[in-house]
Write a protein that binds this DNA or RNA. Structure first.
Lengths: 266, 266
DNA sequence: TGTATCGGTTCATTATCTGAACCATCGGTT
DNA sequence: AACCGATGGTTCAGATAATGAACCGATACA
């Protein structure tokens, strides 16, 4: 692995739950030598990607991301388009809609909208990391990723979030062809107990899967008719979003689901 | 320079004006070998920090920044506090207020608010890079930075943004003691013609200068009374903001400007 | 057809990164 | 006060990964 990758991978250990991390902790988690981590952190700090809190204390993410995120959003106004689609989805289904994006091999929530139709709703958090094996969004992404990526993810230890979480790589692998064929991934209580969700993939201009859009309901509220409605709204609106973002579903993606049938030629 | 720094420094070439950059361009601008740039970009791409647009085409900033910016904002809710201060500033002065943050050696606009008091206002852009030598914010930051940092900035070529832009390092250096003594930096038409601005520095918990808050008016509107009012509002409110952000002005910073006089002991 | 780009790749050379062992410091315990 | 087990940070010989000139294939243009 390249040195730059090592530096960048350190950033993945900062989460909502662990916004500040000490040098030794980071060395332990990453498996790198303390001296290495220190040097990488120094370089990251030089560019504002991390910063130290007290004098000689823990590290946290730096202000550079605010600038770069603004530039990214200016170049690719994803959030705006996504929020629009999600709002439509949560309005028409009366449930929570969210979009997640793949950053390297980390899938994290990007945007979400709630409906005011019910007293209980599935709640989301910004930048929450979604397990690829334990969420409908994760499965949707996995199903449309390269064999190498799938191997990479499934060969790592799979966390058992709930009693319902499937952690057998072979079982998960066996689920993917069906997800590919239908274009829809499902999760019932695999990530959070009492949450039932459907997800469909989002693709970029190279037809690579970059994330997913999902609609989640409390398990008790998910009936067959609601499920059908959600799947229908989800597939058509997400197909539109993919196109708005400049992306194209791959040839293998079930086209009967798309909002507009593909043009022959052009 | 470390390899990680080289990778990170590539990100600085992406701007609002140049959101997409090709491999050869990036190699030229950075001065690194094309093979090196390619390898670094590949590593950045692996982690979602850059992405390629078509098949084998230009690069742009990746989606990882959205996630990391959300985490940063969650850990350090700067934007919220800054926006509040800026809103007060633009309301009481009737002019444009903005805050900039230092990322490594790049100062960029972070947040800004307008007033509706006049028909013409100084306009700002998100993530706009502000020249350290040619803006009041930049001078405020420079004046409270280390000698090494100042040397580093002033030894590089200084862009002449307008006919009024001061580009002589020695002249700029001679301005700094006065800025340090008064706590306020001024720029009249040095960055954008017809813009007069005052800026004061913001400090972190280590008393390092992390950015600046400024109020900018059209040159024609800046009278002595307005200037005095702006400087007064700017210093007191920014001192409060620094404290809210968990920072402390250094001992050398003129304390008579601060909102609350420092406590002896504690 | 010829030229000048482009993005991307190769591989011997070499510069950079690595990591065990080392400080100095801090907080808690005895 | 002495000890312990942490912490963040530093050193330097040896291991490893970064480097860059030259290369390739593709594309665009005249």
């Amino acid at each position: 692995m390249g040195t730059a990758s090592k530096a960048l991978s350190l950033l993945n250990y900062f989460t909502r739950a662990a916004p500040k991390i000490g040098l030794s902790d980071l060395a332990r988690h990453s498996g790198y030598n303390k001296a290495t981590v220190h040097r990488l952190l120094s370089e990251l700090a030089q560019h504002g990607f991390v910063e130290q809190i007290g004098s000689g204390r823990e590290y946290r993410l730096g202000p550079a991301f605010l600038r770069l995120a603004a530039l990214r959003e200016n170049a690719v106004p994803m959030r705006e388009l996504a929020t629009q689609t999600l709002t439509e989805l949560s309005n028409t289904t009366g449930e929570t809609a969210h979009m997640s994006l793949l950053n390297g091999d980390v899938l994290s929530s990007f945007s979400y909208t709630y409906s005011s139709a019910h007293g209980t709703m599935v709640m989301m958090e910004d930048a929450e990391v979604l397990d690829l094996h334990a969420t409908s969004s994760g499965l949707a992404v996995l199903a449309h990723s390269s064999a190498q990526f799938i191997d990479n993810i499934l060969s790592a230890p799979l966390i058992k979030r709930t009693p319902e979480t499937e952690t057998d790589p072979d079982v998960i692998r066996a689920m993917l062809p069906d997800i590919r064929a239908t274009g829809i991934a499902t999760s019932i209580g695999g990530y959070e107990q009492d949450v039932h969700s459907y997800a469909v993939p989002v693709f970029d201009a190279n037809s690579a899967c970059i994330g997913a859009v999902a609609v989640a309901t409390p398990v008790a509220r998910m009936t067959d008719p609601l499920g059908e409605q959600i799947k229908s709204e989800l597939t058509t609106r997400t197909a539109t979003l993919t196109r708005l973002l400049g992306g194209f579903p791959p040839d293998t993606f079930p086209t009967f689901l798309q909002a507009n049938p593909p043009q022959t030629g052009g």
